[in-house]
């Protein structure tokens, strides 16, 4: 029982996928967008987060949508090319958005005062001065905790690709790297273009 529960934390997609995962994931995305809006932490890319100059609510919504749809599109297109299974778009979209649920905790941590202070600190000051800033050390520790949830999301995104596209071995590894790192770069340009060029 415990082993099954632990496996569910590593790979929930053996039990949940398709429309069910999509609905849970979208509900999570709404919560995550609201938390980001109140904390003021933006998604700069798929793997980069922090403060940004556009405080409009739609900017947070666009960032969340881009960070979901770009890797999902890359996974789907790659899956069509590399997988021998007949993959379904709803599985890819559902599992990828569900995989981003741990980011809610990361966004929740960003609401805490030390993280808010950390966002206002000028990181270009000398290290000794930086360490004396109030809340800096706590902020760094909280960032490390938040990093755990980002890693958790990355693990779930790997499982999302594995289950939704039925890939194994080097095909899985290559497509995952393209989806995550290629997606990270694409998200950067798309978010910049949509939120900061208008």
């Amino acid at each position: 029982m415990n082993r099954q529960y632990f496996y569910g934390l590593i790979n929930p997609f053996e039990r949940i996928a398709g429309l069910e995962a999509l609905l849970w994931g979208l509900a999570g995305m709404v919560v995550s967008t609201a938390l980001s809006y109140y904390s003021g932490w933006h998604y700069h890319r798929l793997l980069h987060f922090g403060p940004a100059p556009n405080p409009a609510w739609w900017c947070y919504a666009v960032e969340h949508l881009v960070v979901w749809l770009i890797p999902a599109a890359l996974f789907y297109l790659g899956g069509l090319l590399l997988s021998r299974s007949r993959i379904r778009m709803v599985d890819v979209l559902g599992t990828v958005v569900f995989a981003q649920l741990p980011l809610i905790v990361m966004n929740l941590l960003n609401l805490l005062p030390p993280m808010q202070k950390l966002a206002q600190i000028d990181v270009n000051m000398p290290p000794a001065t930086l360490l004396q800033q109030p809340g800096f050390v706590v902020g760094v520790w909280l960032s490390l905790v938040a990093l755990v949830f980002l890693i958790w999301t990355l693990v779930w995104m790997f499982q999302a690709l594995k289950v939704s596209c039925n890939l194994k071995g080097y095909r899985l590894g290559i497509l995952y790297c393209v989806g995550i790192f290629g997606g990270d770069v694409l998200c950067r340009y798309l978010i910049k273009g949509l939120c900061y060029s208008m």
Partner: peptide, 8 residues
């Protein structure tokens, strides 16, 4: 289990 798991 999920649909893609059975399909896989």
């Amino acid at each position: 289990v999920s649909y893609p798991t059975v399909r896989n």
